[in-house]
Every structure is written in structure tokens, then in C-alpha cells.
């Protein structure tokens, strides 16, 4: 191939796009790290906007209850069904123990925190990115600064504290509802004795099952609200930029939740 037929970008330097993408990645990582450090450093420095923290807690916690409750309820139900199928394929004995143990472990350790994190990411993280992003592109954040109000303290800190505090509560409620979903299927469809089902569940459950899920929930709450605030705070370019920030907030939080979920599980239960 003669030199004049090689596409311009390749003739210039084929490694350039890779290097450019890597530099952009480093820049974004540095920007996110700075944003995180600045946000956390404002947690304990006055003024602390208790009214705003309360309002965000209601938004993150109370208004997310229906969606988290529904997802964990049906997840508990479907796990009871599938674990019963698996148990009867192996042996006709001991199906009750298998169903209760699988429901308890999967709901408390994995499904309740992950599903709550993903649901809150879609409901709350997206809304935060859109609200803060709109404030950014309409100069409302600049206006806050000119009115001697720190945007980190006023906009970011209340949202992150609300995420940190409310996700564990949501997950605890999700644990109860998810296990109840397994109970409904176990008793009404699989004909287990109700009192025995509850007794086996209670005997099997351990403090660490619940605790690990709550730790995950706090981490996911931090990640969801941080990504929502970060993407919104750095959005540019009008309505399209706010739309992109909203999408990026949800996608990045969802990916981080799934990755971090593995590492936290490994930390608590790794062999």
C-alpha cells in the first residue's frame, strides 16, 4: 500500500488514540478522587445542613421502600422455587433445609444489598445527577458560590450522608421482605409447615450474614450518591450534557456495585 493511501489517523500515529484514551481515563480518575476527598472532608466541617440531610434521607430511604420491597419480595419467592427444584433433583430428603438456607444466604448476603443498590442507583442516583447537572448548566451552582455557600457542603454532603445512612436501613427491610417472600412460596406452594419454616430460617441465619449485607449497603449507598453528585457536578453542554451525566451516573454506579460486591464478599467469606 502506498503511503498516500494509508488513512490519515494511522499515518499520524496508530498509538495516539490509545494514549489519548488512557490520558482521559487518568484525568477522570484524578478528578473523581479529588471530588471524593473534597466531599468527605466537608462531612464534619460546619455548617452542617441538617434540614437538607433529613430531606435527602426521606427521598433516598422512604421513597425507595416500595421499589426495594417489591424487588426483594419477588427475588425471595423465585429463589425459594429454584432452590426447591435443585434440592429435589439431588435428593427428595432435606428440601426444607436447602430452601431456607439458600433463601437466607442469597437474600441477606447478596441479593438484598445488590438489588437495593441497583434500584436506588436508577431512582435516586439518576435524579441527583439530573438535578445537580441542571443546576450546573444553568449557573445555579455558580450562584451558590457567589452567595457564600459552598456547593459541596450544600449539595453533595447531604446526599452522600443520606445514601450512607439509608441504604443499610433499606437493605435490612429488604432482608425481612425477601425472606418473607421465600416463606410465602415455601408455605403456600411447596407445602412446608409454617412454624417449621420459620424455625429453620431462624436457626440457620447468622449475625455475619446480616452484617455483611449492611456493610455492602453502606458502601453502595456511598457509591450511588457519589457518582450521582459527581456526574451532575461535572456535566457540561446543556440538556444533552445533563442527559449524558444521568446515564453515566447510573451505569458507573451499577458497574461499581457489581465489582465491589465481589470484593466485599471475598473480604467477608473468601476461602
Amino acid at each position: 500500500m502506498s503511503a498516500d493511501r494509508i488513512p490519515g489517523m494511522l499515518r499520524a500515529n496508530p498509538l495516539r488514540p490509545i494514549g489519548s484514551a488512557f490520558l482521559r481515563f487518568l484525568e477522570a480518575t484524578g478528578q473523581l478522587t479529588t471530588f471524593t476527598v473534597l466531599s468527605v472532608s466537608h462531612f464534619f466541617r460546619p455548617p452542617i445542613y441538617l434540614r437538607l440531610i433529613g430531606r435527602q434521607m426521606i427521598d433516598v430511604g422512604y421513597y425507595s421502600l416500595p421499589v426495594v420491597g417489591l424487588t426483594t419480595l419477588f427475588s425471595g419467592m423465585v429463589i425459594a422455587l429454584q432452590s426447591f427444584t435443585g434440592a429435589t433433583r439431588i435428593s427428595s430428603e432435606g428440601a426444607l433445609l436447602t430452601v431456607t438456607s439458600v433463601v437466607v444466604l442469597s437474600i441477606t448476603r447478596e441479593l438484598s444489598p445488590v438489588l437495593a443498590g441497583l434500584m436506588v442507583s436508577g431512582r435516586v442516583g439518576a435524579a441527583m445527577a439530573a438535578e445537580i447537572g441542571t443546576m450546573r448548566v444553568t449557573e445555579q451552582i455558580d450562584a451558590l458560590t457567589t452567595l457564600s455557600t459552598n456547593p459541596y457542603k450544600y449539595l453533595v454532603v447531604p446526599r452522600i450522608i443520606a445514601g450512607l445512612a439509608m441504604l443499610p436501613l433499606l437493605v435490612f427491610v429488604g432482608d425481612v421482605i425477601g425472606i418473607f417472600g421465600g416463606y410465602i412460596i415455601g408455605v403456600l406452594k411447596l407445602d412446608f409447615n409454617a412454624a417449621t419454616y420459620i424455625q429453620k430460617t431462624w436457626d440457620f441465619i447468622e449475625f455475619l450474614d446480616i452484617f455483611s449485607g449492611l456493610v455492602k449497603a453502606a458502601v453502595f449507598g456511598f457509591v450511588v450518591t457519589l457518582m450521582g453528585c459527581y456526574m451532575g457536578y461535572h456535566s457540561t453542554g446543556g440538556a444533552q450534557g445533563v442527559g449524558a451525566a444521568t446515564t453515566n451516573a447510573v451505569v458507573s454506579a451499577a458497574v461499581l456495585i457489581l465489582i465491589l460486591n465481589y470484593f466485599i464478599s471475598q473480604m467477608f467469606f473468601g476461602v
Binding site: 438535578e131 441542571t134 443546576m135 444553568t138 449557573e139 445555579q140 455558580d142 450562584a143
Partner: peptide
Amino acid sequence: FQSAALFDS
């Protein structure tokens, strides 16, 4: 501000 930048909340 040019757009007034009022807090719409």
C-alpha cells in the same frame, strides 16, 4: 447572572 440562575427548587 445572565439567566438569573434562580434556584428552581
